[in-house]
Design a protein around this nucleic acid. Sequence first.
DNA 1: TGTGTACTTGCGTCATCATGCAAGTATTGC
DNA 2: GCAATACTTGCATGATGACGCAAGTACACA
Lengths: 122, 122
Amino acid sequence: MSPRQAAACCRPVDDLLNPDLFKALCDPTRARLLGCLVKCGRPCSVTEVAECCSVDFSVVSRHLALLEGAGILAATKQGRVVSYSVQYAHLCRTLRKLADAIEECCPASEAKACKEGCCGKR
Amino acid sequence: MSPRQAAACCRPVDDLLNPDLFKALCDPTRARLLGCLVKCGRPCSVTEVAECCSVDFSVVSRHLALLEGAGILAATKQGRVVSYSVQYAHLCRTLRKLADAIEECCPASEAKACKEGCCGKR
DNA sequence: TGTGTACTTGCGTCATCATGCAAGTATTGC
DNA sequence: GCAATACTTGCATGATGACGCAAGTACACA
């Protein structure tokens, strides 16, 4: 199959290779903020998250809103406090689906190597 | 644990949440080119890949070089033809490691949902 | 009702990056 | 050697995006 034919061939990987998801993760500041939230393991307010980073509070607010828009975080408002929490299940599932979809296209000769790292040795 | 404490706490997710990887995937043109190569399942020349996309040839050349720099593609040169191939195993492993690392931080109450999609029902 | 806290939004600025064109390099075949 | 092919690189341009400041909104509490 030529790349031109491949382009016309519709596979799960097409939807999963969604640039919008990666756009949310490609900024160093956002990656850091997300890392804090992931490791924290509980919903956090904007004020709390802002303490992780030396950027302006407004920047943190915007980054968190963007991550929410990408489906990576979920926001809940209680009074004047907005709590952001990591969508662990959704994020893990999306990443694994992408790995599965890529693997699905992987030629047989390499398929074994692809499976490493999933419920096996790493 | 506060986000500030979490920031100081070193976990596998810190390294895996690498913005450079996502930077390579966040451009729509690059995502499309990578999608073609993934679905194609074999090494392709720059000329072949360029047929997938309506952008200038030089743009494709640059995108492929960038994807190689990110470790997503591998390049081999035979004569005047450069063939790019998807690093299936590395890419899948990285994505799954990231999912594992995120899951590792996931509170117990949500952990079950995180595991869905990996060697289980989806 | 006023004051303080928590967050969002508008705006200007600076940096990065995607793109196309043109020119350059490398390699093949005649 | 010369032309053609395959690709890379330099450069200018336009678009996008990250950032900080300042102003605005929403809510709680006295």
